[in-house]
Simulated scan of single mutants.
Amino acid sequence: MSSKPDIDPELGAVLRDSILAHPDVILDDKDVMQALITANDKALGTNIVDLRGIAMARLEGRLDRLEDTHRTVIAAAYENLAGTNQIHRAILRLMDPVDFETFLTDLGGEVADTMGVDAMHLVLETAQQEDDPTVQRLGDVLRVVEPGFVAAYFEGQRNSPARQVILRQVDEAPEFLYGEKADWIQSEACLRLDFGPGRLPGMLLLGSEDPQQFIPQHGTDLLAFFAGVFERTMRRWLS
């Protein structure tokens, strides 16, 4: 008795004509090719080593890894492009206001929305008291701290080496910086600001409810660029 399955002659003829007419359909179908290779291995028996099949299997594994790498690179490229466009839109918004109060108001509004963060605050070091009317009027966005606070907040000590951007997850966000949103902030980006010779430094604080939005493994080039544009814009207002 034959072990080969019976195939309807008409169906077999149709399959044969289709394969001869479009062989690429078979060659491009990974599952079909794998089934054909498996059937060929069974036909050879157990006492024959098919070196060609082993080589093909290894090449197939390498191809799968290359395809995974390719998809990862493409996804990263699209993500970087989207992030670049996001930063560019936020910078353009920064340049729109014609007065300082609108500039800061937009910072906590449309700029924060454009960058996809839940909170954005400008932290300024100053020796003046917080009863300044400008500070009180812009209290939702502006935070005034004592000299040395920025360095301490960045590294936990006042004599820490300068780093322009740090990304980290937070367990308990400080309420005096984030206000009523402090309980929801799970990660933050801290952008150190240099306002020029003779001026105290500042910090731009970006907070997110997503604990994975700002983590140390992420790149900081785009945020560093944003910080550079922001601090130069601030110098214009401070002059």
Results as ranks from 00 to 15, higher is better:
Met1Phe: 07
Lys4Tyr: 12
Lys4Pro: 00
Pro5Lys: 14
Asp8Thr: 02
Pro9Gln: 07
Ala13Cys: 02
Ile19Asn: 04
Leu20Val: 07
Ala21Cys: 06
Pro23Val: 02
Pro23Cys: 03
Asp28Ser: 13
Asp28Arg: 12
Asp29Glu: 11
Lys30Tyr: 08
Met33Asp: 02
Gln34Tyr: 09
Gln34Ala: 15
Ala35Pro: 11
Leu36Arg: 02
Asn40Lys: 14
Lys42Tyr: 12
Gly45Met: 09
Thr46Asp: 14
Asn47Arg: 11
Asn47Phe: 12
Ile48His: 14
Asp50Asn: 15
Leu51Trp: 07
Leu51Ile: 06
Gly53Pro: 07
Ile54Cys: 03
Arg58Lys: 14
Leu59Thr: 02
Glu60Pro: 03
Glu60Met: 11
Arg62Ala: 11
Leu63Ile: 12
Arg65Asn: 13
Leu66Asp: 11
Glu67Gln: 13
Tyr78Arg: 13
Glu79Phe: 02
Ala82Lys: 09
Ile87Trp: 06
His88Tyr: 15
Arg89Met: 00
Ile91Pro: 00
Ile91Gly: 04
Arg93Gln: 12
Met95Cys: 07
Phe100Ser: 10
Phe100Val: 10
Glu101Phe: 06
Phe103Cys: 02
Thr105Phe: 03
Gly108Thr: 04
Glu110Pro: 00
Val111Lys: 03
Met115Asp: 01
Gly116Tyr: 01
Val123His: 09
Val123Tyr: 10
Val123Phe: 08
Glu125Arg: 09
Glu125Ile: 03
Thr126Gly: 15
Gln128Asn: 13
Asp131Thr: 09
Val135His: 09
Gln136Ile: 11
Arg137Ile: 00
Leu142Phe: 03
Glu146Ser: 15
Gly148Phe: 05
Gly148Gln: 05
Phe149Ala: 12
Val150Tyr: 10
Tyr153Phe: 15
Glu155Trp: 11
Gly156Pro: 11
Gly156Thr: 10
Arg158Asn: 03
Arg158Tyr: 02
Arg158Val: 15
Ser160Ala: 15
Pro161Val: 08
Gln164Pro: 04
Leu167Thr: 07
Glu172Lys: 05
Ala173Met: 05
Ala173Cys: 08
Glu175Pro: 00
Glu175Phe: 09
Leu177Val: 13
Tyr178Asn: 11
Tyr178Arg: 03
Tyr178Ser: 06
Glu180Gly: 01
Ala182Ile: 07
Asp183Leu: 04
Trp184Asp: 08
Trp184Asn: 02
Cys190Ile: 09
Arg192Val: 04
Asp194Asn: 14
Asp194Met: 01
Phe195Asp: 00
Phe195Cys: 05
Arg199Val: 01
Arg199Leu: 11
Leu200Gln: 14
Pro201Asn: 06
Gly202Gln: 08
Gly202Arg: 07
Leu206Tyr: 04
Leu206Ser: 01
Leu206Gln: 01
Leu206Arg: 02
Gly207Ser: 01
Asp210His: 08
Pro211Tyr: 07
Gln212Cys: 03
Gln213Ala: 12
Gln213Met: 13
Phe214Leu: 05
Ile215Cys: 07
Asp221Thr: 14
Leu223Gly: 01
Glu231Ser: 04
Arg235Ala: 10
